[in-house]
């Protein structure tokens, strides 16, 4: 089995997801994780797709010797999507997912952090250049990782909300203190809370 990351964007209209996923299904592609959103009327989606074999074709080898087969399959999937892309005015691209640049991907490693360490960081205030860069630079310096992020600019007000995974052994208090200093310099408010855990 081989996985690819599919990215598509274009002007929003009814039926984009239906058309793209129909084309993928006809190419024997399985839709795994995905995320879509619409920003200022622009549709955008990222999805991880997997494929065992093209319709009527043999299994796709998944060892490192099969790179040419993997890339050929990618081109066939792209080709099957081209009509849909053209009809809907979409830009579509596929990226082959590998564990490393030379090795085909053997497992999906999206979750390398302990979710109990997830924090929700909220920053808001008057808009100015550099809010996201300054805050995320401090997060990166602490070794923490941004897992999810959304921003909104409404008139002259700016809101940044992130889910952040703390680095192993680092403390929420240290991150909070350093981010409060950055926020104070920017003249914006910053608040950190534990990300809401899943409750069954």
């Amino acid at each position: 089995m081989q996985r690819y990351l599919l990215y598509a964007n274009g002007p929003d209209q009814v039926g984009i997801v239906a058309s793209v996923t129909k084309s993928l299904a006809e190419s024997n592609c399985n839709l795994e994780d995905s995320r879509m959103t619409i920003l200022h009327g622009q549709f955008s989606i990222m999805m991880v797709i997997s494929i065992d074999h093209l319709p009527g074709d043999d299994l796709i080898p998944s060892d490192s010797d099969a790179k040419s087969d993997i890339e050929a399959t990618k081109e066939l999937i792209e080709s099957s999507l081209s009509q849909t892309a053209s009809r809907l005015g979409l830009y579509i691209s596929l990226v082959t997912l590998y564990d490393s640049p030379s090795t085909p991907m053997s497992g999906f490693q999206s979750n390398v952090f302990d979710t109990s360490d997830y924090l929700c960081v909220s920053v808001h205030g008057a808009d100015r250049i550099g809010i996201v860069s300054s805050v995320t630079e401090q997060i990166a310096k602490s070794g923490a990782s941004v897992i999810d992020l959304a921003t909104r600019l409404i008139d002259s007000s700016y809101v940044l909300v992130m889910t952040v995974a703390l680095a192993e052994g680092s403390s929420t208090k240290d991150l909070e203190d350093s981010l409060n200093k950055v926020a104070s310099d920017l003249g914006v408010a910053c608040n950190i809370s534990s990300a809401t855990p899943d409750v069954l």
Partner: peptide, 8 residues
């Protein structure tokens, strides 16, 4: 805004 459950 300080108590949002996350970016979503």
């Amino acid at each position: 805004l300080d108590r949002l459950a996350g970016p979503g």
